[in-house]
């Protein structure tokens, strides 16, 4: 969902900041008397944010404590003993750090690059085929996986990969190749995870780029055609250069999220199998398992904070770069 809406925000924020220049030089109470009704519309959202976003920020003390569970939030937080940076040091020295950082960043980099290449090429292909009706049908089908939950995707993967699954019984066995135990062997998972990431996400990216192509100035193509340029030349010299700014900005913004992964993909598709950790464990699943399986609240919170801080600087930095390239695309 966050990828789905990232660009929308970009758009929303850009247009928002321009208008807030002229302000009245009147006091707080004057403003409230005048616009009280309007301000009251902020109340439900503000309460939500206070409870679900700001109150948890008080919990940022958790990584610095040895948490002993008690019944109330405040005593869990404040009656526990301070341990300084112990939890961070523990994480820093553990072999887990390298593994989850490598997996998180590695998968994100591969998926960003591959996602861009696939989305742009499929969008161009859909735009170019002659029969508009089949283009529409292809697009509809490719977008469908986007609507299925990760749990369902886990089932679909299982149908192919289980010992009884299609790959083992339908392909390998007839050729006399030995059965592969996918759910116990980590080495296959980079391919599987990357495949399903794009299986589910491609349709979305295609729509974005397809719309961008549809919005391009057609007179450029007409002029090029009159000058004798082939359609292939038009694609290479007009269409792709025109798409470039969008490709750059969307990629840069995606890089902002490089420290967080799609939990659903990495948790549901490998069925959270511990033996697959080497290639399937990312920061998000690590934080989840530390909290829910091993019950190590402080460690989980420490890694979570580590991720939040890295993510914060990444987004701010990336936004700064995007602003340098194209001021319009700046988030704030």
């Amino acid at each position: 969902m966050s990828k789905a809406t990232g660009e929308m925000v970009a758009n929303g924020l850009i247009q928002g900041t321009k208008a807030e220049s002229k302000q009245r030089k009147k006091g707080f109470f004057f403003e409230m008397r005048r616009h009280g009704a309007l301000y009251s519309m902020f109340i439900p959202g503000a309460i939500f944010l206070l409870i679900f976003a700001y109150l948890p920020m008080v919990g940022l003390v958790i990584p610095f404590k040895y948490i002993t569970y008690s019944n109330s939030f405040w005593s869990t937080l404040f009656d526990s003993e301070w341990v300084g940076f112990y939890n961070f040091e523990f994480f820093w020295d553990s072999p887990d750090l390298y593994r989850i950082m490598r997996n998180t960043i590695g998968y994100n980099v591969i998926n960003i690059v591959l996602g861009l290449v696939i989305a742009v090429s499929v969008a161009i292909a859909l735009n170019e085929i002659r029969n508009r009706k089949s283009a529409k049908t292809y697009q509809t089908i490719m977008f469908m996986p986007y609507f299925l939950s990760w749990v369902i995707v886990g089932y679909l993967a299982y149908a192919f990969l289980s010992p009884n699954g299609f790959i083992n019984m339908g392909i390998l066995k007839p050729f006399g190749i030995e059965e592969i135990s996918f759910y116990t062997d980590p080495k296959y998972w980079p391919f599987i995870l990357i495949f399903f990431a794009h299986w589910k996400g491609t349709g979305y990216g295609v729509i974005i780029y397809l719309a961008a192509i549809a919005g391009q100035d057609q007179s450029l193509y007409e002029a090029a055609a009159i000058d004798g340029a082939s359609r292939g030349q038009q694609i290479r010299k007009i269409m792709i250069p025109l798409l470039k700014p969008m490709m750059i900005i969307l990629t840069i913004l995606a890089v902002g999220g490089i420290f967080s992964s799609d939990f659903g993909l990495f948790y549901n598709v490998p069925l959270n199998q511990g033996v697959l950790k080497e290639t399937t464990d990312v920061i998000n699943t690590y934080v989840y398992n530390a909290l829910m399986s091993s019950g190590d609240i402080s460690l989980s919170a420490a890694v979570g904070l580590f991720q939040s801080v890295l993510g914060f600087f990444m987004v701010v930095g990336v936004n700064w770069i995007a602003g340098k390239i194209d001021p319009e695309s700046k988030l704030f």
Binding site: L13, G45, L49, F52, Y54, G59, I62, S72, F312
Partner: peptide, 22 residues
Amino acid sequence: FLYFTMLFGGGMVPWYLVCTQV
């Protein structure tokens, strides 16, 4: 007030404690 929550969060653990204990 809204935008900051999209940039930075307390993380899963404090969120979980708020949901269950508060």
